[in-house]
Simulated assay, not measured.
Amino acid sequence: MIEAVIAWILLLAVAAYACGGGTDYGAGFWDLVAGGADRGSAPRRLIDHAMAPVWEVNNVWLIFVLVLMWTGFPELFRIVFSAMWLPLALAVVGLVLRGAGFALRKPTRRLAGRRVYGAAFAISSVLTPFFLGAAVGGVATGKVGTGTTASADAWSNPTSVIAGLLAVASSAFLGAVFLTGDARRLGEDALVAYFRRRALLSLAVLAVLALVGLRVTRDDASHVHYGLTHGTGLVLVAVAAGCAVATALLLLRDATTWSRVTALGSVALVVAAWGIAQRPYLVPTSLTVAEGAGSSATLRWLLVVTLVAVVLVGPALVFLYWLDTHGKLQPLTDAELADEPS
């Protein structure tokens, strides 16, 4: 049925945002914990260099997710944004502050101003994925539904907290893996070792949080827990774990290109496992995919628009990511800008 197809597209879009946006959030996380102005100057310089070409593009996936929810599953959109408007509003504020901080930090000449903008960018890079993850965790518990009013219980329960922490940790993992590759490409051996250690550390934290999450969801989100520990969901979780282990081994062997692929695979597979674990529900166990879907005409047009976007926008995004990961998008220096003809 067409609503099932749209639901799969929505899940793929969420996975794409978790990977693309998560990598950017992870870079901000490492910016936050890089240390003072002297100690953190080299990591922050690499972070600025790596993020500059693509950080805005990754928000395309978030917009696409919202459009799919709003038009394809309006009841899901209404439930989520009614019951959890506060964490989602905080995430939006974080997105705005993060973008402004990153855009204004580099051109600002005064050290005090750079610190303020840098702090806004870095702190928001942690808070935004946490609140988005907490909202996802709230949905997984099934504590929201038709008629549910805004309540802290909907997004501050144990599953929501663990989901938020997992979102931050997975972002840190992806960010460190990609920054390791950027450092290798630029010949910064010291930064290769620096970010490789952080990638392995964040992977260890992820493993611990995943084990805690399995214990927490057993009672707090039983439907999703069952889906993650049985059948297809369990297979995907196992493959994701294998990709994570492969990432660690590849990083130790300096195979930074393939480590990016396996790192993205591990995160995308976990998102896919979560989606499959919720079947057949959008909100366990009160709203099924069929019940939450919009009209058939709307879904058909949404499918057409999605196909058009894949054909027109997809190749451009793939090409942009290829250019960025192959070092073809180098920002202009001040000296180069000064040489530009007026």
Rank of each mutant, 00 (worst) to 15 (best):
F77D: 03
L62K: 09
V116F: 08
G113I: 04
F64M: 14
R98I: 00
L88F: 07
R115I: 12
L88E: 04
R110V: 06
V60F: 15
T108P: 03
V67G: 12
F81Y: 12
P74V: 03
L90M: 12
L66A: 09
W70M: 13
G118T: 10
E56T: 15
F64Y: 13
F81T: 12
R109E: 14
A89E: 02
V93A: 11
F77M: 12
A103W: 04
F64I: 14
F73H: 10
R109C: 00
A91E: 10
W55V: 13
G72P: 06
V60C: 08
V80D: 04
V93D: 01
A89Q: 00
V96Q: 01
A119H: 03
L97E: 06
R105Y: 07
A112L: 09
V92M: 06
N59L: 14
V57K: 01
I63D: 11
L90S: 04
R109S: 11
A112T: 14
L62N: 12
W85Q: 06
V67W: 11
A83F: 04
G72D: 05
E56R: 13
M69G: 10
G113F: 05
L76K: 10
R115Y: 04
E56G: 10
V57P: 02
A119G: 01
L66D: 00
G113K: 12
A89G: 11
W61M: 14
L62T: 13
M69D: 05
P87Y: 07
K106M: 08
T71F: 13
R115K: 11
L86G: 02
W55A: 09
G72L: 07
P74G: 06
M69W: 15
P107G: 08
W61T: 01
V96I: 15
G118S: 09
A112C: 01
G72S: 09
F102T: 07
F102K: 00
K106R: 12
I63F: 15
M84R: 03
V60W: 12
L88D: 04
L86H: 03
V80M: 13
V93W: 04
N58P: 09
W55D: 07
L62R: 08
L88V: 04
L86P: 02
G94S: 04
G72Y: 06
A100T: 14
L95H: 00
R114H: 05
R114F: 00
K106P: 01
V67I: 15
V67L: 14
V57F: 13
L68M: 10
R115N: 14
V96H: 02
P87K: 08
G94Y: 01
R105K: 15
L68I: 11
I63L: 15
F64A: 15
I79L: 10
R114E: 08
W85M: 04
T108L: 01
L62S: 10
N58L: 14
E75I: 03
L97K: 05
F73K: 07
V116A: 13
W85V: 10
V57G: 07
